[in-house]
Amino acid sequence: MSESLPDASPLSFSELYEQFATDVLRVCYFYLGDRQKAEDICQDVFVKLLTTKPDLKVGSEKAWLLKVALNRCRDTWRGAWFKRVILGSPVFELIPAPDQFGKIDEEEHLMSAVNQLPPDFKEIVLLHYYQGYAINEISEMLSLPEGTVSSRLNRSRKRLETLLKGDDIP
């Protein structure tokens, strides 16, 4: 008989899926720019959740899901199939809700600039600015020193400024 940890997450699979699956899916899509791949990874993340039954603590559920998702995104990005099949950068397309069509011109620049960042920078920007994680939390999730996270965040901001001005990245 297995005994739950005192601070173990009380959330069921359905609750975790309802609360976090869309965020996982969007982060994967934002990272890869490929909807099908993002769905595949999201699927794998939740299959892993169901099959490995990790000891998730209260409040750390989403961080675990995003960590697994980003690891898979990184593997996919580096993987031979993705590199060779894509053969160039995929076109990152926005997928607005129907009531947002026509309102997204200015925002499109920021989204595509973030998408153009190198993977190491992009994942930190996504976790910090998109998912709201603090530097120390990102450091723990990605197993990186806080100084590295902080420096990548600064360099990402500089690159984004350059991209948004329309200049080429040096």
Partner: peptide, 13 residues
Amino acid sequence: REIADRTLGGLNA
């Protein structure tokens, strides 16, 4: 966060 939620609002689990 706000912008991404708007511009990727059509992408849902």
